[in-house]
Design a protein around this nucleic acid. Sequence first.
DNA 1: ACCATTTTGACAACTTGTTGTCAATCAACC
DNA 2: GGTTGATTGACAACAAGTTGTCAAAATGGT
Lengths: 148, 148
Amino acid sequence: MNNTESGAAFTELLLEVFRLNGVLLTEGDRLTADLGLTSSRWQVMGAISEHPLSVPYIAREMGLTRQGVQKMVNILMKEGLVEFEDNPHHKSSKLVSLSAEGRKRLSRIDDIQRAWANQIARDHDVDDLKRTFRFIRQLRDTLERKQS
Amino acid sequence: MNNTESGAAFTELLLEVFRLNGVLLTEGDRLTADLGLTSSRWQVMGAISEHPLSVPYIAREMGLTRQGVQKMVNILMKEGLVEFEDNPHHKSSKLVSLSAEGRKRLSRIDDIQRAWANQIARDHDVDDLKRTFRFIRQLRDTLERKQS
DNA sequence: ACCATTTTGACAACTTGTTGTCAATCAACC
DNA sequence: GGTTGATTGACAACAAGTTGTCAAAATGGT
């Protein structure tokens, strides 16, 4: 079976997404190395910065397994960056929220991340950024619908 | 510091890239689960399907560390899917090539992967796919240039 | 109110990456 | 030809995710 033109283009894109993912993780870690927070940790913290959320909810939000997020949350708990709140809708599934220290730490990271994002984004057209975001999300939708 | 419009768009894109990356890996593994080869294994095998390459070269190609690729290659070696060839340019750094069995296995995977890519790509505009590829690569270029 | 199904947390084993370090090899230059 | 610096393979420790399993808790239909 031969590749269609679209199929070949999709495969090229897919490999490039893997590479970009790697570079983004590396950069994210580098940005906040001195603050003692890796990319995945502040991503979890970012998810609960507005409202406290349960672990499975965060996982669905980020496209990860609940076990993986649970592990991360347990570590953040040990480090005193998040707290558990009672969940009115579920006795044993607590809501995770930022502690005062967690909030302070996240806000410093947010400053750094925002400055960095602004700087990178300056070199690119805002419409390209938005269009690419929409297309990537659409691609993910297609993939997720096919697998179900 | 507030986000610029571009900065916010970039951050949104970045989070979506993480999610797409996850879905792609999951799908890749699901596709070839019965063939006993995970995504990362056939990615490495794909890299050497044209010409034998050294481990560090594969790593640079894929945007990974040489140690990570080395680990993968050692596993593929144990399973008899790749072989080491003498490298005329380096006494101890062998070239990695596909074994007969590896080539056979990869060609089956390629068929499956191609059919899948064609099917997914069918739902999307080929120009969008190409444009997105170019933009993502450009983004990665920017990121890699900033960090050096 | 009961029962079947789903959701959840906890734990273990595993995969795929990372960094750091060491010694061996290679390349370049004086 | 010797020294110096970069590249390489091997190994260890670690990070971040996965799957699978179990029991407890929640949910929904009859």
